[in-house]
Amino acid sequence: SASLEDVKTAVLGLLVILQTKLYTLPASHATRVYEMLVSHIQLHYKHSYTLPIASSIRLQAFDFLLLLRADSLHRLGLPNKDGVVRFSPYCVCDYMEPERGSEKKTSGPLSPPTGPPGPAPAGPAVRLGSVPYSLLFRVLLQCLKQESDWKVLKLVLGRLPESLRYKVLIFTSPCSVDQLCSALCSMLSGPKTLERLRGAPEGF
């Protein structure tokens, strides 16, 4: 439990870093931090981490990651405290083949985003970082199938509809809506759902 406290501190630090690096160059920093966060949550489900502190780590990670939004130009952003989304000039939600690297070039400044813009690109060529939603999407499927803490599952179920409104997140990387529907149906009809959940409301 003591070591998990250190892990929790590290994860919180990564969330803060991602919130900053999403809007700064090099964009590969945001890509790497995002991948680290998603990989860490995957390990929770792989090794069945069920301690309360592990659940709190997942809760905080999902609470942040499910706020990711994308505009029509595929640029990622996060809402501010007033709910207004600021889109990044440097990070996009497109999935890119590994051989192309985590970044790609664009020939010049991008068109203005639909929300308040981030800082304008400084040079004639900007390297865009790929932060594909499919990585998070796979972890969300694991959550629906394996999550043991009701608070975490409730958060994910509550945030998913709003995330799905931003269709560009889903359609720019390999996210299977069929698998999502299947996971939701299995969660509702499967007898093991109630068996594994802690803290579920009576009558769920």
Rank of each mutant, 00 (worst) to 15 (best):
S1W: 05
L4H: 09
D6K: 00
D6Y: 06
V11I: 09
L12H: 15
L12S: 15
L12A: 15
G13Q: 01
G13I: 00
L14H: 01
I17S: 03
L18S: 02
T20S: 13
K21A: 04
K21Y: 00
K21V: 02
Y23K: 04
Y23G: 04
Y23P: 03
L25F: 12
P26D: 05
S28T: 10
H29V: 02
A30W: 03
A30V: 09
T31N: 07
V33Q: 01
V33S: 07
Y34V: 06
E35F: 08
E35G: 09
M36G: 05
L37M: 06
S39R: 13
I41V: 08
L43P: 00
Y45R: 00
H47T: 05
H47M: 14
Y49C: 03
Y49V: 03
L51P: 01
I53A: 05
A54Y: 04
S55A: 10
S55F: 03
I57R: 00
I57E: 00
R58K: 02
L67Y: 13
L68G: 03
S72H: 10
L73R: 08
H74L: 03
H74T: 04
R75H: 08
L76G: 02
G77I: 03
G77F: 04
L78P: 00
L78S: 07
P79W: 05
N80T: 10
G83H: 07
V84F: 12
R86S: 08
S88F: 01
C91F: 15
V92L: 10
V92M: 07
D94Q: 06
M96P: 11
E99G: 13
G101Q: 14
E103W: 09
K104R: 14
K105V: 14
S107V: 11
G108I: 13
P109T: 14
T114Q: 15
P116S: 13
R127N: 09
L128S: 10
G129Y: 08
S130T: 09
S130R: 11
V131F: 10
V131W: 05
P132R: 08
P132V: 04
L135M: 15
L135I: 12
F137C: 03
V139N: 06
V139I: 14
V139P: 06
L140V: 09
L141I: 14
C143D: 01
C143T: 05
L144D: 00
Q146G: 07
Q146Y: 09
Q146M: 14
E147S: 00
E147D: 04
E147M: 00
E147R: 00
S148K: 08
D149Q: 06
D149E: 11
W150I: 02
W150E: 02
W150C: 01
K151E: 15
L153M: 08
V156I: 06
V156G: 00
L157W: 00
P161E: 09
S163Y: 07
L164T: 01
K167F: 04
K167P: 09
K167L: 03
K167I: 02
V168L: 06
V168Q: 10
L169W: 05
L169C: 06
I170A: 05
F171K: 12
F171N: 14
S176I: 05
S176Q: 06
V177N: 01
D178F: 03
L180D: 00
L180W: 01
S182P: 01
L184V: 09
S186H: 10
M187I: 11
L188H: 03
S189D: 10
G190Q: 14
P191M: 11
K192W: 10
L194V: 15
R196D: 05
G199L: 06
A200T: 12
P201M: 07
E202C: 09
E202V: 13
E202Q: 13
F204Y: 05
